[in-house]
Design a binder for these strands. Structure first.
Lengths: 348, 348
DNA sequence: GAAGCACTCTAAAGCGCTTTAGTACCCGTG
DNA sequence: CACGGGTACTAAAGCGCTTTAGAGTGCTTC
């Protein structure tokens, strides 16, 4: 028979009440800063609680209507595309910073796709597990805002454009359109006329925003050799698309990759095909990371502060949980860090 | 005044009881597969529950002693070293797979260091938040096992060698020593005699295991130009150490990096210094990832299945939660994938 | 033909907290 | 001196579930 552990017992409010010689309700009032107890009693109770190492049971709190002191985050990505992206862990660590201050837990789940994600929200809601959620990777025709509205689950959408159809949701986003415009500006100024955008997952809101903006910028300037090609963000597809476009009759002179991993793969592929970066083709990565300074040539990249992005999102959510109104926050436009992978177009 | 949402009400067991015309206790028995109700009643109750979309409130469950249906994972790493590592997200996604099957939640927290981590465990325990935890990055002189033992919190240590002082904890680990020995074997056979190991964080159990093994292997073969240098896993330190050792009087002919990011930085640095890989210096990365195939030369790397590692750990934890005995599981030894960054030592 | 039993079900307590309603007391007022 | 009104506190209900102790059937059994 396995030796039974003797788990230390958790102190409860009843213990405090007994030690302090007051009723449980008095303890509750005292510890929650509510009126109804004198200052000296409050102090005494607080001391006893501290001394006993008491912490409120979230279960009991949640049950008596106080909420679960937890927010949820679900990542809908296939397991194998997860590892490479530095963005998420940074985002999460920013989120954590803010949540930790308020002793809010982060319930985390990774699933295969959006339908699964919706199921998770429903389950979390029914199980009383979370007080609110952070939604990432918003999409065009996204079912999630409507669902969260229906459930009455406070939520902030990270990376989506504000959506007036769901006024209950907050939004935190970066102006991809502005960033894309500035990148095109820069490349145009360097003489680039044929530009290919190796985009991320089709259907993601920010992917579509970038694609739309690129198209608009091209039209405005009368450029015809400009296109966007969507991928799954993997190095494999990044390489494959690069190979294809560089092998065409009139290859582009500039490539914009929607993440750092694809950009890296793209440079490797270009080099392999005999293209020199940036002499023959310029490369811009949309997402800066250590990776960009780990290969030669160093990659020019759009840099944003993902940790701060996470902090902002978490702050919005806590505001919502405190009963604040939903709002929209725009974080600074990603800034283009020019390194070695961009240069004047050949022949200018 | 902000429009109040009309949150859908969650169905409770009372609702089911009413609809099914039985008592709440009968519902509880029926839904939990306990004896005490007839099969036809059980079926009826189940149907009503399903129809109502009922899910047990974890708060209520936890309160009545059933546990929180949640396990915890805390990552003690400074925020900025987090993003680069592909290992964790893969581990987490493996963990999730197993937990999701059983509707267990994963409470996730990132903190600055081990003391904070201990505080989090205490808090989680006092708040009744988790039923068990997964501990990563075990260290030499690690305070965590003792703490978890004291709290009676089921735990599985990921990556540590089994520790007989805390029989309550399970362990899942890979045989770093064996892997290191095989790498040295391979390099030795290729003629390498001066080998530098750019190790990870000093104090981590697996770092120390690798270092010890390397030293033993060197001694066994009478090699003197062999050493380990610990780093913080960052590309910056990887590059710095590489620069230093390659600049020495008798530079090593083989470098073993404890992660993929440093290996990449190392190759870049070596190339910059005029060393050709693998002609002048061979490079092995301890951790395979897409990165290793994204630079030329492709990196030879020790590969393990991190997702499966996570699954195994999660399975051990659920076994523990089910009342099983603590155990030790050894996952397969990482395998060396030989690509282009390793070759015969110059002059052999 | 009453005792015993197995079976299905109900009542009620309890988990740790919050909150409402209520009690006891003290103070100043007219 | 009775009254109103505040302050400091307690009692008790309730959140949604589990679980123990019974209660009420219909069957066997000697």
């Amino acid at each position: 028979m396995p030796a039974k552990r003797s788990p230390a017992r958790r102190p409860t409010m009843k213990d405090i009440a007994r030690r302090a010689g007051v009723s449980e309700s008095a303890v509750s009032f005292a510890l929650n800063g509510r009126p109804g107890v004198s200052d000296v009693t409050r102090e005494r109770v607080r001391r006893v609680a501290e001394q006993l190492g008491w912490r409120p049971s979230t279960a009991a709190r949640a049950l008596s209507g106080e909420g679960a002191a937890t927010v949820g985050l679900v990542l809908a990505r296939p397991a194998d595309t997860l590892g490479v992206d530095s963005f998420f862990l940074q985002l999460v660590s920013g989120i954590q910073e803010v949540l930790a201050e308020r002793h809010l837990g982060l319930l985390f789940q990774v699933v295969e796709g959006v339908p699964d994600e919706c199921a998770v929200y429903r389950r979390w809601w029914a199980e009383h597990r979370v007080d609110g959620v952070l939604v990432v990777d918003p999409r065009t025709d996204d079912p999630r805002p409507a669902l969260l509205d229906e459930l009455g689950l406070p939520a902030v959408v990270i990376g989506g454009a504000p959506d007036e159809r769901h006024p209950g949701l907050s939004t935190v986003w970066a102006d991809d359109a502005g960033a894309m415009a500035s990148v095109v500006d820069g490349l145009y100024a360097l003489g680039h006329r044929r530009i290919v955008h190796i985009a991320g997952l089709s259907g993601l809101a920010h992917t579509e925003r970038r694609i739309r903006t690129l198209r608009a910028e091209a039209r405005r300037r009368g450029l015809t050799g400009v296109e966007s090609i969507t991928t799954d963000y993997s190095d494999a597809e990044g390489a494959a698309v690069t190979r294809r476009v560089l092998g065409s009759a009139a290859p582009p002179t500039a490539l914009i990759y929607d993440n750092d991993v694809m950009a890296l793969a793209g440079v490797a592929t270009a080099t392999e095909l005999g293209f020199s970066v940036p002499a023959d083709v310029s490369v811009v990565a949309w997402e800066d990371s250590a990776l960009c300074r780990m290969v030669k040539p160093w990659l020019s990249a759009l840099s944003r502060d993902s940790v701060e992005f996470g902090r902002t999102a978490a702050r919005e959510l806590t505001a919502l949980l405190d009963g604040g109104a939903a709002g929209t926050v725009r974080v600074p436009v990603p800034r283009l860090i020019e390194r070695e992978s961009t240069g004047p177009a050949r022949g200018t």
